[in-house]
């Protein structure tokens, strides 16, 4: 009783059978239309694929890739919050302009915690007054949120916000939802883009959803600003 032996046909098509065995088996295959068809398909596919050039990054693409990846990864040893203290004044100005009361609900430490602060606190007993956490330690932590720094996070002003949102929307840059701190705000809606930025010096997360974009506090997930076109 003949069995259509796909494994052996594959080995034949891949050139993995010893020469003599290959010749004998090829004759056997030729006597069965089904096996002949399988062999012909396998050979056609393998031949076609072997003719494909190995894709390589162009120099330009490679440079761009390195730049983008570096932009997203912190290589600094300084905890980020150190640079965020002066942002207080700018953020307060934002509140004045937009009148977002919730922004100050947790006035003090928590409102202005950097994105990674929860993690740093969980890892160590570091407080804002006595930072002991190094960037390296927080990078090793599981599921670390976006490891952004000044270099990594674009810094924009309020004036630039609408244009920045438009750019994010146009890019449709892929979003790793694991990196979004306030995913619950997006529930049931399609998240088009997300980016952590320093807005007037304050770290915020911009979530571009459908028609609107939310500027949120990544720690409390309070919506600070809603941007509509």
């Amino acid at each position: 009783m003949h069995r259509h032996d796909e494994d052996r046909i594959a080995a034949l098509a891949e050139g993995h059978l010893p020469v003599e065995e290959a010749a004998a088996f090829e004759a056997e295959v030729a006597s069965c239309p089904t096996c002949t068809e399988i062999l012909s398909d396998f050979r056609l596919a393998i031949d076609a694929l072997s003719g494909l050039p190995e894709p390589r990054l162009t120099d330009l693409e490679r440079a761009g890739l390195h730049r983008q990846v570096r932009r997203h990864i912190t290589l600094t040893k300084r905890p980020r919050w150190v640079r965020l203290v002066p942002a207080f004044a700018a953020a307060a100005a934002l509140v004045a302009v937009f009148g977002v009361a919730s922004m100050l609900q947790n006035q003090g430490g928590e409102t202005f915690q950097p994105i990674g602060a929860r993690l740093e606190q969980a890892d160590t007993t570091a407080t804002a007054a006595a930072p002991t956490t190094t960037a390296a330690a927080s990078m090793g932590a599981p599921a670390a949120p976006e490891m952004a720094t000044d270099q990594a996070m674009p810094a924009i002003t309020q004036d630039e916000l609408p244009e920045f949102v438009a750019t994010l929307r146009a890019q449709e840059k892929s979003v790793d939802r694991n990196d979004v701190s306030c995913l619950s705000l997006v529930e049931g809606r399609s998240l088009i883009a997300a980016e952590s930025v320093l807005l007037g010096g304050r770290p915020v997360e911009i979530l571009v959803i459908d028609e609107e974009a939310l500027v949120v506090d990544p720690t409390s997930c309070d919506v600070l600003i809603s941007v509509r076109p």
């Binding site: 761009g64 890739l65 892929s174 790793d176």
Partner: peptide
């Protein structure tokens, strides 16, 4: 590139892959 078919998408996915490698190396 072979999975996605166009270079820009492949570049984005390549970037995301490396960011994941960095974050989840542990």
């Amino acid at each position: 590139l072979r999975m996605l078919g166009d270079r820009q998408a492949a570049l984005d996915a390549t970037q995301d892959t490396w960011l994941t490698v960095f974050r989840k190396a542990d």
